[in-house]
Nucleic acid binder design. Structure first.
Lengths: 227, 227
DNA sequence: AATCGTCGGATTGTTGAACAATCGTCGCAA
DNA sequence: TTGCGACGATTGTTCAACAATCCGACGATT
């Protein structure tokens, strides 16, 4: 026991720290979860003392967690008024899609190695399986995986985190939009076609398809969430 | 005077709020400044109590400032060990340029309105003036303005903040590289050509030029900052 | 002499309490 | 109705304390 522990330690010395997440991180993770599940809705207020008591932590710790979430744009701080679950205005939707267009199209044009392309393919199949099982929840997450895999083609840690933040931000206001069952369903064919083009090495075409997809998706989102 | 102050304020606070930046924000700003000026070098350790005492604030406040800076990747937190000024490995340089390629090229391909193009032109002229005045410091910042203006073409708040973070990250390790006087000087012609293509509406050409520029820049950075 | 365990100092992580500053609201007066 | 001031609640910030953890030094064993 002690031996394996010591081994683990010495191995992890350089980069891979076996870091126990701090309490603040766990609080942030819990809030992130509630945000993703829609238990906290945009505009909701998060009171420090309430959350501190609910989770059995100090107010200062909650505060640190808020800082994390604010950096991820999941909540907004109104000075002296409190933090609120972020709510996206119509302009923000366009803004988010502008980021997605920049990142995803650039990533897919780079191509990426075979194993990364395989990850995209896996996400496509995951979506098909979810559709077959009629699992809307799984369908949505498969779609997120697909686009995450697209960005991962670039092999950039920074692009990956940016994308994951954008996806988290979108989940925030998808809860309202996803009530209609076949919201993602129409995108399955798109994903398949994009993936096929990617596998065939037709990067330019894949890029154009993806761009068109994003434009349509933005349009739909704007309409649904619309003002 | 009052005008510029008001502008700065309205930028900082999302709403029209006359929001006095919190103490934590001011601490973060101070540290950001020291980082940009090279008074804090990559790898340096930032001790909470020391900074708290130096700036006359509480340790908790310093802690919040650290959270901000960590979210911006300017510092890294080693759990239970402290926070250190971020240092970029060769891989990180490529990573940063991957983000820049995605964002800048996408933005320039979108074109943008005349006033935004004019901002790009202004940055080019600013660079020329700095070169004429032989002011290397101003030259570097003019170059940053140029690329910031490029991204601003897209008119996306999120892209703007991402870009500013990337630029801040780059400043971190530029202090070593910029010792040679004409580091940016060679880029003046590039900027002029890119700007001209943009003004002529030749967006595709502008995109290609920018891409080539970024590739060369990455190559040079990697060489200088060597392995 | 070299390696290993252990101890102690220093720093971080977290808590709890306190206080000032600020905001929203409610009631009251004109 | 409109304005105004006081109250209550919440945030912003500080302080002091303690546990947890890490680093380096010291000493013991081989």
């Amino acid at each position: 026991m002690t031996t394996s522990e010591a081994q683990t330690r010495s191995q992890a010395a350089a980069r891979l720290r076996v870091a126990v997440p701090s309490v603040a991180d766990r609080v942030a993770a819990e809030l992130r979860l509630q945000l993703a599940e829609g238990r906290l809705l945009p505009g909701n207020r998060l009171t420090e003392s309430t959350i501190a008591e609910e989770l059995g932590v100090s107010r200062n710790t909650v505060r640190e967690a808020f800082a994390e979430l604010a950096a991820e744009r999941l909540v907004v701080r109104h000075p002296n008024r409190g933090v609120f679950v972020a709510s996206l205005a119509p302009g923000d939707i366009h803004d988010v899609y502008t980021v997605r267009r920049a990142i995803e199209v650039s990533a897919i044009r780079g191509g990426g190695g075979p194993e990364r392309v395989a990850a995209v393919r896996a996400a496509v199949e995951e979506g098909k399986a979810a559709a077959a099982a009629d699992d809307d929840e799984a369908l949505g997450s498969a779609n997120a995986h697909f686009h995450g895999a697209i960005v991962a083609l670039a092999g950039s840690r920074r692009l990956d985190t940016i994308m994951s933040q954008v996806l988290a931000e979108m989940r925030l206001f998808f809860h309202k939009a996803t009530v209609e069952a076949d919201f993602y369903r129409g995108y399955l064919a798109d994903n398949e076609e994009i993936c096929a083009a990617l596998e065939a090495g037709e990067l330019d075409r894949a890029g154009r398809l993806l761009l068109a997809y994003l434009d349509r998706s933005e349009e739909k989102q704007t309409a649904v969430h619309g003002e």
